[in-house]
Design a protein around this nucleic acid. Structure first.
Lengths: 209, 209
DNA sequence: GTCTATAAATGGATAGAC
DNA sequence: GTCTATCCATTTATAGAC
């Protein structure tokens, strides 16, 4: 045991703050790079160059390239979680559905690479760490609870809803990047889904809920 | 000008046939590899090993890695086109929609890498050649004409439909690979869409068609 | 914490012999 | 058409100076 003076503690804190700040800087640069070069186009050399470092120095902050992806994955899910938590509480089904759909489709449309990282699994061998995955689980749970709040509680209903939103999102990302071609379909999609769900008891729907 | 004897022509043909057969063999191996290692995990070295060649020899058949991807892209679209052409002609809206949805969701669920290659753009810098892209355009046109045959002719209606199908497909691929969790939702999704489209004239829908 | 140096593996690609 | 040889970039990782 070495005795830690108050001064030591302060130094450690400062160092830690600095360390985290640099990490943040690297991750911001990484977001920028995957945004322009594609998620799979990220290279540690280029990343190091972008933050004015030697590639080897990145290892002080991230133990591997996958670790960088893992932090981006956590980042993206945290951003999404914050937005979901900002959804106005309401018992108006259509209004909640519209907010949620707009949130997801916008989120997807804003950053193709982020969408790819969070929702498609396109990086060979990349698996988020348990800690990062926990945030993704939280996103899912939060989204599910918002939907449950307006009566969409069944597995089938929820799956159908996520399919509708995923469809608008993936089409927006793949076929209308930067535009609003599928964002403009949200009102239609919500009306379509809501009428189907409301219009009839679960028992007579094509698939049992 | 050198004079070509009939024998020369036969030799050239045989060579050509052999060349195409080897090309086919390489592409089949490539499909297998992207299926297991992911679309972005394809390596020319591993591909060469799989067909018992030196990596450099692949360049006799494909001018670059992107050229391999381009042939896979054309391959996949040809497969899809064949299936669409096999859709039974009918004027029953629900039946046609069900067939189309099942076709696409199954196609996606069967081969994740193929879906990624054809519908998401996850390979940095890869752009299909005009010849390959033409096949994709044919797929789109064929799909659109089948839908138009049952009255889904407007841009908005068609976009909403493709979003629904893309949603089921991408959820199936990403969240239920090998299963049928979203395939089972097809009847629901088709009923939802059909009722919305039939139920009311275009003018009073949320977005004008 | 950052650098230089260094290593070994892998990847895409080309030139030229046979 | 296939090979050997070769090139250059990238990735991952370690050791050690400052």
């Amino acid at each position: 045991m070495t005795s830690a003076t108050p001064t030591d503690t302060v130094r450690r804190d400062r160092r830690h703050v600095r360390h985290e700040a640099t990490k943040r800087e690297i991750l911001d640069a990484a977001w920028k790079m995957v945004g322009t070069d594609g998620l799979n186009g990220l290279s540690l050399r280029a990343l190091a160059r972008a933050v004015d470092m030697e590639p080897q120095s990145l290892y002080t902050y991230f133990s591997s390239k996958h670790a960088v992806y893992d932090h981006l994955f956590a980042d993206g899910n945290r951003q999404l979680l914050t937005r979901i938590e900002g959804i106005a509480v309401s018992d108006d089904l259509s209004q909640v559905l519209r907010s949620m759909a707009l949130l997801f489709v916008s989120f997807a449309g804003e950053d193709r690479a982020r969408y790819e990282l969070l929702f498609l699994r396109t990086i060979p061998d990349f698996e988020p760490s348990p800690e990062s995955y926990a945030i993704a689980t939280e996103v899912f749970a939060k989204g599910r609870s918002v939907l449950a709040g307006v009566g969409i509680g069944g597995d089938t209903d929820f799956d159908l809803w996520t399919a509708v939103v995923a469809g608008l999102s993936s089409q927006q990302v793949a076929n209308a990047p930067g535009g609003d071609r599928y964002v403009r379909l949200i009102d239609d999609a919500v009306a379509m889904f809501a009428e189907y769900i409301i219009g009839r008891p679960a028992a007579i729907r094509a698939t049992k809920a």
